[in-house]
């Protein structure tokens, strides 16, 4: 248990350090470009601007602004307010957006895993068959098509020609399916390829032959013995896949009108709503750390040779 705790503690400290560095760099960079945080369509009088500057603490020296904001963040979990959206607290945006993005991400990931491993295993077992060829072509296509193209084609197909899903919005399971499929597709494709290669390698190994020799059936050998060895590359891919799914959802949330963190982040970054963008980046950073830590942990579980370092 001790090594586990030590591992988690160390990861946690690295995460804090990373978030702090990201925050610091982003803070100073954003202040460097933040021409006029209160630019509106109409020119503002200097006086009025001063009131606003004071309200947001912009009149203080940069370093003290930084110290104050770091203090607020660490002690009160206060990530400031949106600069462009009626001063809505960033924490509220995260609280609203996170469950949405998380639901979408979980679905996409589960879909990618399920489809990817099944297709990969089938491809490997019936290698060089027509089935294998078509799966692998589809998988490469999945990697080669940008997901916004995939999404618009999917909308045409499954919303208009075969009307089974709604065009957008958020709230019901039906509204979730199409974006999750589009989001998971490239990752399903990649996982399929990984599983296939891993599987083919494992199937050539002695212990598989032994298993067959013992008279075990195909299904049992493949699912109980081979898959376990072949799944390792897939597990290590889950870290980057999580990152990819998070980034990918930026586009899909926009196309499918989903009020998740991705749409908050994109809008905020493009409109230079720096507090919001910064808050979202920190959440994403933490998510990635957690995902990577889980991947490393599961590595230990799956492969007895690997130890926590």
């Amino acid at each position: 248990m001790l090594p586990l705790l030590k591992f988690l503690f160390r990861r946690f400290m690295w995460m804090i350090l990373t978030v702090w560095i990201v925050y610091t760099i982003a803070f100073f960079l954003s202040r460097a470009v933040e021409g006029d945080p209160f630019a509106g369509e109409r020119a503002m009088s200097a006086e009025v601007k001063r009131y606003k500057m004071e309200r947001y603490g912009y009149d203080k020296p940069l370093v003290s602004q930084y110290a104050r904001s770091l203090w607020l963040m660490t002690t009160q979990l206060d990530l400031h307010e949106s600069r462009k959206l009626n001063e809505i607290p960033v924490t509220q945006l995260i609280a609203e957006g996170f469950p949405v993005s998380a639901s979408l991400g979980i679905f996409a990931l589960v879909f990618a895993l399920a489809l990817g491993t099944v297709a990969g295993v089938i491809s490997a077992v019936y290698r060089y068959s027509f089935l294998d060829f078509s799966f692998m072509t589809a998988a490469t296509l999945g990697i080669a098509v940008p997901n916004f193209v995939l999404a618009s084609i999917a909308i045409m197909l499954f919303v208009f020609w075969i009307p089974i899903f709604p065009a957008g919005g958020w709230g019901t399971l039906r509204q979730l399916v199409l974006p999750a499929l589009c989001l998971g597709a490239p990752f399903a494709a990649y996982i399929a390829r990984l599983t296939r290669t891993g599987m083919m390698e494992v199937l050539n190994q002695d212990y598989i032959r032994t298993a067959y020799a013992k008279g075990l059936g195909d299904r049992r050998v493949v699912l109980r013995h081979a898959l376990r060895g072949a799944i390792l590359p897939v597990v290590s891919y889950l870290g980057p896949a999580t990152a990819g799914i998070l980034t990918g959802s930026l586009v899909l949330e926009r196309i499918f009108f989903i009020p998740g963190m991705g749409s908050h982040f994109i809008e905020a970054a493009l409109q230079r709503d720096f507090p919001v963008a910064l808050g979202m980046v920190m959440v994403y950073t933490m998510l990635l750390f957690v995902a990577n830590a889980i991947v490393d942990l599961s590595y230990v579980v799956i492969d007895p040779r690997v130890r926590l370092e």
């Binding site: 990373t18 990201v22 982003a26 990152a243 998070l246 970054a269 963008a277 979202m280 950073t285 990577n292």
Partner: peptide, 13 residues
């Protein structure tokens, strides 16, 4: 550390 930064943000920035 760089790995865990969502780099789309960096680029936009």
């Amino acid at each position: 550390i760089l790995y865990s930064i969502p780099f789309i943000f960096v680029v936009i920035f």
